[in-house]
Design a protein around this nucleic acid. Sequence first.
DNA 1: TGCCCGGGTGTTTTT
DNA 2: CACCCGGGCA
Length: 781
Amino acid sequence: MSYLDELNDSQRQAVQHTQGPSMVIAGAGSGKTRVLTYRIAHLVKTGVDPFTILALTFTNKAAKEMKGRIASVVGYGEARNIWMGTFHSVFARILRSEASKLGYPSNFTIYDTQDSKSLLKSVIKEMGLDEKIYKPGVVYSRISSAKNNLISPREYMSNQDVMISDEASGKPRLGEVYMNYADRCFKAGAMDFDDLLFKTNVLFRDHPQALHAYQHKFKYLLVDEYQDTNYAQYLIVRKLAAVHENLCVVGDDAQSIYSFRGANIQNILNFKRDYPDYVLFKLEQNYRSTQTIVEAANSIISKNKDQIKKKVWTDNAQGESIELLRANTDNEEGRMVAQNIFETKMREQLKESQFAILYRTNAQSRSMEEALRKMNIPYKIFGGLSFYQRKEIKDLLAYFRLICNPKDEEALKRVINYPTRGIGQTTIDKIVLTARERGTSLWEVILDPIQSALQVNKGTASKIKEFVTFIERFHHSLGITGSYDMAYEVAQTTGILKDLYNDKSPEGVARYENIQELLNGVKDFSEQRRADGGDDRLDEFLMDVALLTDADETDENEDYVSLMTIHAAKGLEFPYVYIVGLEENLFPSQLSLSSRTDLEEERRLFYVAMTRAERRATISMANTRYRWGNLTYCEPSRFIDEIDKAYVKFPPNWNGQVSDMSDLGFGGGMEGWSSFNRQSGGAGSEGLNFVKKQDTAPVRIPIHVPRNFKKLNNTNDNGDYGPVEEVEVGMDVEHPRFGKGKVVKLEGGSPDTKATIFFPGSGKKVLLLKFAKLKVLPSTA
DNA sequence: TGCCCGGGTGTTTTT
DNA sequence: CACCCGGGCA
C-alpha cells in the first residue's frame, strides 16, 4: 500500500473514506489531483470493479492524465475500464446508447457553437425576425442558460417572468425561436453542447428504468471541480448518486470562475443540505508554490466576502517577490515579459516549458506573441480558434458528419455546394423551405424531391440527385469500409484534396497540410481501433471530435512557453507565471464592475492565476493599450493594490496608482517597437524594413504544434519532417511531397515566414515555414 | 454563381 | 483593427 505513504494525514483520510457522501475542499496546490487519483486507485485496490466507478473531470486532458496515473498504481487493464471524462463526453456516450429512448439516432451529431449559431441564424431569418435585434450570439446564450437550468422551450414560453423580461428586452418571440431551434436540432438528429446535459436529465426524468440502471451501475461517483458545476450537472450527479450515495465531490470555492456558463457556487454550499451525513475534508497545505505566492494569493482572496473559511499554508521556501512590470504600451509589455523570460531562462538554465503567460482575454495574446517571436522564443497558444474550427477542417468533417448522419442540417448546408457543384443559395433556400413546410429534415427532401414537391429545374434536380447518391454510397458502406479508407476516399473523390493541393498560395498549402493532418488523425484512430479490436468506423471517430479542446493536446516532447487565458490555465501549474494586463476595465473586466458578485469572480480569477505559479509569479500592466483599433489609457488594476505589499516588488517609478501621463512618450530606447508592432502584418514600410533586418539572422520558427492533434504519421519522432526550427537561404532541405530542394529566399516575419524553395523535381515553391514539414539536409558545400 | 470591396460591428471567459 | 456580411459587378 505504498501509495498511501505518499499522502499527508488529511489527504489519506479523504482517500480512505470511501463509503457515503464526502466533500473535499481543496485549496490551490494542495494535492487535489493526487487525492482523486489515489482515491480511485484505492477503490480498485480494495476490490471495487472499475466499471462501477464514474469520475467526472473538468477537461478531457485531466481525465487522461488521471487515468495514466491510476494505471501506474493498479495497471492499465483495470484503469481503462473506469468511466472517466468530462460531463459532456461521459453523458454523450451514455446518450448514444440510450438515444432511441429520446427519439434520437445513436449516431446523433454534436453541434458546436458555430453550428448552433448558424442554425439559429436561419431560424431567426425564417421567422422573419430582425437579426439586428435577435442576434444569434445573444439568443444562443439565452437558450444555453435556459437549458443549463433545465427549462424546456415549453416551460420557457409558459414562464411569466421569462416572457416579461424578453419583452422588456425587445425580443418577445425568443421563446418561439428556442422552440423552433430545438425542433430543428431534433429533426437534424443533432444535440448542442447544452443538450448533452439537458437531454441526460430528460432521459433520467422520463425513463426511470434507465436511471435505475445507471444508479446501480455506478456505485462510486467522483466529481472534480465541483464549484464549477451548473444546475443541470448538479441534478445529474444527485440522481445518479441517489442509490449508493458513495459520492465524493472535490472543489474549491475560491476557484469558482465559470458562473457565466451557469456554474453555481451554491452547489458546494448546498452539499451539506443534500447529504446531511456527509464528511468534510479540508486540504489546506499547499505543496505547489512558494510562501510568497501562497501568502500573496491569500491576501487577494481575503478581499472577497463570499467564501468558505480556510487557511491555505505552505512549508515551502519564501521564494522571490512578485515583480510588477509596468510598460508604456501593450507591445512594450510584451517585450518586457519576453525579455524577462529570456533573462530568467538564461540565468537559471531553464526550459521554455517552465514558463506560462496568462491573460484575461484572448485578444491579449497578440502583443505577447509578437515579442516572443522577435526574441526567438518558441511558444504555443492554447485556446482561440482550435484545429477543428478551421474552415477546411469543418468542411471535411461536415462530409463525415453527413455520411454518418444524413439528417445533419448544418453539415448538409455546408457541403452541398462545396466544392462547387451548381447548387446555389437559391436552391438551398428552397430545400429549407420545403423541409419546413413538410416538417422533415433537409435530407428527406432531397432524397425524394418529387414526393416533397421541391420546385427546382431539371438540371438542378440531377445535380442534387448526384450529390445524394454520393453521400448514400458512403453511408451504406459505413460498416464495411474502415474509417481511414473512407475518410481518404471522401477527401479524394470530393476533390477537396486536389483543390487544396493545387492552391499553391501559402494559405492553400497550410490548408492542405491541415487536411492531411486530419486524415492522419483518422488513421491514428483507425489503427488504434484495430489494435484494440474495436469498431473501426468513421462515425465512431466523429463521436468525440466536437468535444475535444485545445487543452487536450499538449506535447511534452516540445519545448515552448505556454500562452493561454486564465480560464484555460485552471488546474495547471508552471514554475514561472506571468499574469499580464493588470489594468482596470481589462482585469477586472469592465463588464464585472457593476456587481459585487461579478467582481468577486474576477478576483477569484486573479487568485487562480496567481496560484498557478510554483516558483515565481510576475505581474504586468501597460499604460496604454490598443483596444478595438484605438489607443486607450489604462489605470492600474485594483488587484495590484490588493496584494499585500510585503510580497510585491514595484517598479522604480511606481507612484502607487494613477498613471503619470507625462511619461507616455514612445521614446526611451523603444524606437521602432511600438510603431512596428502596430503595423504588423500591414504594409507599413517602416515595419517591413525592420523585419528585413532580422532576415539576415537565422530565422527560428516558434514551434507551432498543430492544435489538438498528435504528430503526423508522416512525420516521425526522430525528427524527419518535423517542424523546422532554423532555415537559412542556401540550405538544402527535403519536403515530404516535393522532395529535395534548395532555399532561395526568405520573406516575411516569423511565424509567417515564407520560404521560396527550388525543387528540381517540381520547380519553385513558396511555402509557409510553419506548415511546411521540411527536413534540413546536411550541407552539400 | 462567384468574387471583390466597403461598411458596420464587436471583446470577457468555454464545454 | 479584423472579421463578417451584403451589395454590386463580371
